Computed example of a mutant assay.
Amino acid sequence: MSGDDPGGRCAGFREAISARLDGESPGMPVAALDRHLATCAACAAWSSLVAQVTRRVRITPAQQVPDLTVAILAALPSSPATAAAVRRRVLGTALRLALLAIGVAQAGLAWPALQRGAGAMSAPVHMAHETGAWNLAVAVAFLAVAAAPRLAAGALPFLASFSALLAALTLSDLDAGWVHVERAVLHVLMFVGVGLVATVAWRGRRRWRSAASLREAWV
């Protein structure tokens, strides 16, 4: 068989030779490949040459190169968007945990009045129950926002108006001597919780505006 036609039938045999040198399946019976090499001088010479090149490559020692992994990773630009997303997620988690803690504490303040009817300054039992119910409702609002931040915007009008009115009345009662300082200080817990709910609502509004802007950009 002539060996001057590598682009014809010999091409398939040479692919098989290359595969066998790489330790792979030649894709044809080995006996057929060997018979071709025995009858095709061109493929036999090509096989010998390729085998020599392969052997030289395999036995040539690899050059020592420095480990540039650290330098390459340090040179990679950080993603501002990813870093900002992580910061937002951490802040959101911190706000929810803080609201959870304040909600539990607020419920703890409401429990004695609900359980025993014991109010501050010897308040009547029903007034103590009312106060406990209000404190428990506020605690539930805090816990609901901590569990589902999307509720913050809906809870904020009630919580903000209640806390603003309570703050004004507490200051007035303190000035008139109608409430003890220790009792007034307990309201700070609720004011902090309302501030956290307002922050959660504001962050949710910012996300909604960003999403709306993206939708408009794609329309």
Rank of each mutant, 00 (worst) to 15 (best):
S2Y: 11
G3T: 04
D4W: 14
D5A: 12
G7N: 08
A11M: 12
A11C: 12
G12L: 09
G12R: 09
E15R: 05
E15L: 04
I17S: 02
I17N: 04
A19C: 10
R20V: 02
L21C: 04
L21E: 08
L21F: 05
D22F: 13
E24P: 06
S25V: 01
S25C: 02
P26W: 00
G27R: 03
A31Q: 10
L33C: 13
L33S: 14
D34I: 10
L37A: 00
T39R: 07
C40F: 06
A42N: 13
C43T: 01
A44I: 07
A45K: 08
A45Q: 15
S47M: 08
S47V: 01
L49S: 07
V53P: 05
R55F: 08
R55K: 08
R56T: 11
R56F: 14
V57S: 09
P61I: 03
Q64V: 09
Q64A: 14
V65Y: 10
V65H: 12
P66C: 03
P66M: 04
P66A: 06
D67T: 00
L68W: 02
T69F: 01
T69S: 15
T69R: 08
V70L: 12
L73G: 02
P77F: 10
S79D: 14
S79G: 00
P80L: 06
A83L: 07
A83I: 05
A85D: 14
R87T: 08
R88I: 01
V90A: 11
L91C: 02
G92Q: 01
G92R: 04
T93L: 05
A94C: 10
L95D: 03
R96K: 12
L99K: 00
L100T: 15
A101T: 01
I102G: 09
G103C: 05
V104I: 13
A105E: 13
A107F: 03
L109D: 12
L109F: 05
A110W: 10
A110Q: 05
L114V: 01
R116E: 13
R116M: 07
G117I: 04
G117A: 03
G117W: 06
M121L: 06
A123W: 06
H126V: 13
H126N: 09
M127R: 01
E130R: 02
G132W: 11
L136H: 01
A137F: 11
A139Y: 00
A139S: 06
F142H: 00
A144T: 14
A144L: 14
A148D: 15
A148E: 14
A148Y: 14
P149H: 04
R150P: 07
A153E: 10
P157M: 03
A160R: 15
S161Q: 10
S163T: 07
A164G: 10
A168T: 06
L169Q: 13
D175C: 00
A176C: 05
W178K: 12
V179W: 01
H180P: 15
H180R: 09
V181T: 06
E182M: 06
E182T: 09
R183S: 06
A184C: 11
A184R: 03
V185S: 11
L186Q: 05
L186E: 11
H187C: 06
V192L: 12
V192M: 11
V194L: 03
L196W: 01
L196S: 02
A198Y: 02
T199C: 09
W202K: 08
R207I: 01
R207L: 11
W208M: 09
W208V: 08
W208E: 11
A211D: 15
A211Q: 15
S213N: 08
L214Y: 04
A217K: 14
W218A: 12
W218F: 08
V219F: 08
